[in-house]
Simulated assay, not measured.
Amino acid sequence: MPRVRLNILGNGVREVEVAEGARVADVLREAGLLSTEYVVVKGGRVVAEDEPVADGDELILYPVVSGG
């Protein structure tokens, strides 16, 4: 099973195991995180929920900030 490293800014780093063919949305779901609460960066670029992930990938999660 592929292992993906999550670097959650402000909340540390952890690894998540996902099934072959997994996408960013699957990683977030497996980690118990909501995609609406983070901007996900992979390989230096912002990626969408349907971006495929592979064993050894690192996703950097930036919390979404809103307000006025």
Rank of each mutant, 00 (worst) to 15 (best):
N7I: 04
G12R: 04
A22S: 15
G10E: 04
N7R: 13
E37P: 00
A19H: 10
Y38F: 15
V27Y: 12
A48V: 01
D26Y: 05
L6H: 05
G56P: 00
G56H: 04
P63D: 06
N11M: 05
V39Y: 11
E30R: 12
P52I: 12
L59C: 03
G10L: 04
P2D: 11
A22N: 08
E17Q: 13
R45I: 11
D50R: 10
V40I: 15
E49Q: 04
L9G: 06
S66G: 15
N7F: 03
L59S: 02
N7K: 13
L28S: 02
S35Q: 08
G67Q: 05
V18I: 03
D57G: 04
V40M: 09
E30A: 15
P63I: 07
G32Q: 14
L28Q: 01
L34W: 07
V18A: 00
A48Y: 01
R3G: 00
G21K: 10
A48Q: 08
G67S: 05
A22L: 10
L9A: 14
A19M: 09
V64C: 05
Y38G: 07
R29I: 00
M1V: 14
V27A: 12
I8R: 12
G12A: 02
I60Y: 06
A48N: 04
V64I: 13
V16M: 06
V39N: 09
V46L: 10
A48E: 12
V53W: 04
A22G: 09
G12H: 02
L61M: 12
V16C: 07
V40A: 09
P2M: 14
G12Q: 03
Y38P: 06
G44P: 05
D55S: 09
D50E: 14
G67T: 06
R14N: 03
D50Y: 10
G44E: 05
E17I: 05
I60E: 13
